[in-house]
């Protein structure tokens, strides 16, 4: 019963990103084969898969950094290929990306990094852009004195936060996070997870998160998609993952490292999790 209503809810929600029959390959090698994926407004989708299965390729293809062989991608209801230059720009403004290594511009300070998209796209006075940049810096939990530092002066965790602040500079609808918590200590990673959940709640963000962090998957992700065999093997809640019959998925979610996080009585857990998320 409960599952039924949940799936109905899902069906009614607005689809933010929809990938259909996507095929991507390099030379003779096919990396993604007829892949389908949907992300709905306001959810945090965790994306997992073994190394080299094409998680990054998928993200880069969706962001149009890589060419695709066939298939369609609708972002925020729009097909990028059929858009004119102006519409493409407007669409780009509604996407934010946190790259795995931050990809902050090393010649600019954190504040200038955050202001770069604002300066290019928005018609706002400088004092307001300054305040907004500082606001974003505060929102992601950086100290105010980090604003005028250069990326080379920041620690790994601070770079992730600064990069998130830049991804949020234009208040995007859809944010792509590539391994946001890799390289962070467990406390920092947990804080980051909370931050993402809080931003989702207050700003109505939709989050596409590539991650290997089991804690993140269990604590903040509404849904999880597993990439394998060149397509999305399974998507759904943690409960679905635990029940899915595939050796890789089983060992991923039931392996030694997951055991401490996945409690024994999983039906109770998943309910508790779901209530916690709402």
């Amino acid at each position: 019963m409960d599952d039924n209503t949940a799936s109905q809810e899902t069906a009614e929600r607005e689809t933010i990103l929809s990938v259909r029959d996507l095929t991507v390959g390099f030379g003779p090698k096919v990396v993604l084969d007829n892949l389908n994926l949907d992300i709905y407004r306001g959810e945090i989708l965790g994306f997992v898969g073994a190394s080299g299965t094409g998680k990054s390729v998928l993200m880069r293809t969706v962001l149009r950094l890589l060419p695709r062989r066939s298939g369609t991608i609708h972002i925020l209801g729009e097909d990028y290929d059929s858009l004119g230059e102006e519409e493409r720009m407007k669409l780009d403004m509604r996407l934010g990306v946190l790259f795995q290594h931050g990809a902050l511009f090393s010649a600019l300070t954190v504040r200038e990094n955050i202001q770069l998209p604002m300066r290019e796209y928005l018609d706002l006075p400088k004092w307001l852009m300054d305040e907004l940049a500082l606001l974003k810096i505060e929102m992601v939990g950086l100290a105010a004195d980090a604003a005028d530092k250069y990326p080379s002066e920041l620690s790994g965790g601070m770079i992730k936060r600064a990069a998130l602040a830049r991804a949020l500079a234009l208040d995007p609808d859809l944010v792509f996070l590539d391994e946001p918590t890799s390289g962070l200590d467990p406390i920092g990673a947990a804080e980051f997870d909370e931050l993402i959940a809080r931003l989702r709640d207050t700003l109505g963000l939709t989050v596409y998160m590539v991650t290997h962090d089991l804690d993140s998957l269990f604590s903040v992700c509404d849904r999880i998609a597993v990439l394998g065999q060149k397509r999305v093997l399974v998507e759904g809640t943690i409960e679905d993952m635990l029940e899915f019959d595939d050796p890789w998925v089983q060992s991923y979610f039931r392996g030694k490292r997951a055991r401490s996080i996945v409690p024994q009585d999983r039906s109770k857990t998943s309910q508790a999790l779901r209530h916690g998320l709402k």
Binding site: E131, L135, A144, D148
Partner: peptide
């Protein structure tokens, strides 16, 4: 949720 004011680092 927003803070009352943003602190600028003193130069």
């Amino acid at each position: 949720v927003l803070p009352d004011k943003v602190e600028k680092a003193e130069e």
